[in-house]
């Protein structure tokens, strides 16, 4: 295994700053859509809060004299916490600050897995949310688990592992539609939250998509095909047979 070798493109702080800028741009583009999602079940502030937070984060990242990946993550996290003014501050920002400790030895496949797991753990702890609560955890958990499995068990290159993680997050977002919110502002709506796509899960997917696009560009590779119907959680799929794997994504198609 070469999990402890630096991923060259990602070790370059400039690529990480580029990723932050790409996220900021994407969130700004999706601002109205995120606000619309949050208007249906929340307090309609997710689009505005995230757009403002990521714009400030991109600026702070650009201003760094020595933008090594860990410093960029820390700065972005702190800026999000200071600027967002809602739950997304501690969830996206606080978790990023905390997880940045895992990048101490630079960006390697191994460290990236540790980073992802620590980030997820912090989001779960801070928000006291688990899979099935109709929150960003529903997108994040399958993404992180898939990334870990793809790197550690399947031995895929990090870029392919990230592409699988994006697939998994996409299905996780779709999964938030038919379930009832148990955490966050939407939980106050009870059953009326059913049928709505979670805004935090959605923005989590956008962030992962941008990370993938920038990582692909930095590694000078084609963006691996994101096929939302491919079985990226093969543990269950393999055990349950091909039929189950093919059925699973159908449940989420209402999310479109």
């Amino acid at each position: 295994m070469s999990g402890d070798e630096p991923i060259e493109a990602a070790s370059d702080g400039a690529a990480v700053v580029a990723a932050v800028e790409a996220v900021a741009e994407r969130i700004e583009d999706e601002r109205a859509h995120l606000t619309e999602l949050d208007s249906a079940i929340g307090d309609a502030d997710h689009g505005g809060n995230m757009a403002r937070g990521w714009a400030a984060a991109a600026e702070a990242a650009r201003d760094l004299d020595d933008p090594d990946p860990q410093a960029v993550c820390k700065t972005v996290g702190k800026t999000l916490m200071a600027e967002v003014g809602g739950a997304s501050g501690p969830l996206f920002g606080g978790s990023l600050v905390f997880a940045s400790a895992e990048l101490d030895g630079g960006v390697t496949a191994e460290n990236a897995v540790a980073f992802a797991e620590t980030y997820l753990e912090k989001v779960e702890d801070r928000g006291d949310a688990r899979v099935g609560d109709q929150t960003m955890v529903d997108a994040l958990t399958p993404a992180v688990h898939t990334f870990k499995k793809s790197v550690e068990t399947d031995g895929l290159p990090p870029l392919e592992a990230l592409a699988k993680a994006v697939d998994a997050a996409e299905r996780g977002v779709a999964f938030t539609v038919p379930i009832r919110a148990k955490k966050g502002r939407a939980s106050y709506l009870g059953w009326r939250s059913v049928g709505h796509q979670d805004p935090g899960a959605t923005s989590t997917l956008y962030i992962l998509e941008e990370l993938l696009a920038v990582a692909a560009a930095a590694l000078d590779a084609e963006t691996p095909d994101v096929d939302a119907t491919s079985p990226t959680i093969p543990d269950e799929a393999a055990e349950g047979g091909a039929g189950d794997a093919a059925d699973a994504p159908d449940a989420g198609e209402g999310g479109d």
């Binding site: 307090d43 502030d45 809060n49 916490m81 200071a82 967002v84 003014g85 501050g89 501690p90 606080g94």
Partner: peptide, 13 residues
């Protein structure tokens, strides 16, 4: 309380 810009929200600092 508030988001620091006169709106609804909370800020850790």
């Amino acid at each position: 309380g508030g988001d620091g810009r006169g709106g609804i929200g909370t800020v850790p600092d």
